[in-house]
Design a binder for these strands. Sequence first.
DNA 1: GTATATGCAAACAATTTGCACGCCT
DNA 2: AGGCGTGCAAATTGTTTGCATATAC
Lengths: 125, 125
Amino acid sequence: MRYSRQRNIIKDIVFSTNSHPNADWVYHEAKNFIPSISLGTVYRNLKQLSKMGIIKTIYDGSVARFDWNTHPHNHLKCIECGRITDIEIEKTNNFAEKVLDDYSFDVHDIEVTFIGTCLEHKNNK
Amino acid sequence: MRYSRQRNIIKDIVFSTNSHPNADWVYHEAKNFIPSISLGTVYRNLKQLSKMGIIKTIYDGSVARFDWNTHPHNHLKCIECGRITDIEIEKTNNFAEKVLDDYSFDVHDIEVTFIGTCLEHKNNK
DNA sequence: GTATATGCAAACAATTTGCACGCCT
DNA sequence: AGGCGTGCAAATTGTTTGCATATAC
């Protein structure tokens, strides 16, 4: 993969936040650095970075979001604000064994999303 | 909610399969019963049935799929064939308690998707 | 120099919506 | 009769792609 300034900036933007941004947000941020950058370029590079395992694509309903954290971890999603927060669940791994035993299914990855209400929005009710 | 033949048929179709169909598949099935039915009607009714808790919407990447099983259960998704299979994980529930304690997050629902390779596709390699 | 990356715009896929008409209640 | 539901087509949204040009190496 050849160097490109736009890809480098896109990567830096994703690495700069914990907010699991979508392509459009990354695009607007990238414009601060390269005003002429196009949305197509952003999509192409996010996909490419994801394919190379440098970032990770997570799906939030029907929109793709991007996460610099490629290590196994899970997410809390607030139905009030839509915010997605990282969460560590130790020992998610013994699930994989159990699933292999019970279903003969080779688990490569587990996506867990907890859907509910975050502290802030519980209090604001 | 007023009765409609199209909604009734759409509901029956979703209830007739374990394959987690998308809107388009439901549309083509529904045409067998009401040839003049429109895709818009299918989308409207799937959404409505989902909102009323009669069926459940699950997201598979960027496409919505529909599940008659509204009880808490999880899914295996094969990266080879894309098939989504139901899976029972007993005691997923103590996650909810733990998350409440550690993150002050009220868990309403947990979506777990195991991504990997199913038996059939392990053998075919 | 050659292949990969870009910007732009058009194409796409999934889904939603406005409108005039039809059918439950 | 009144209003919700429908079919149709156009509109929207998120994403991908073809093409000519620009840039990395």
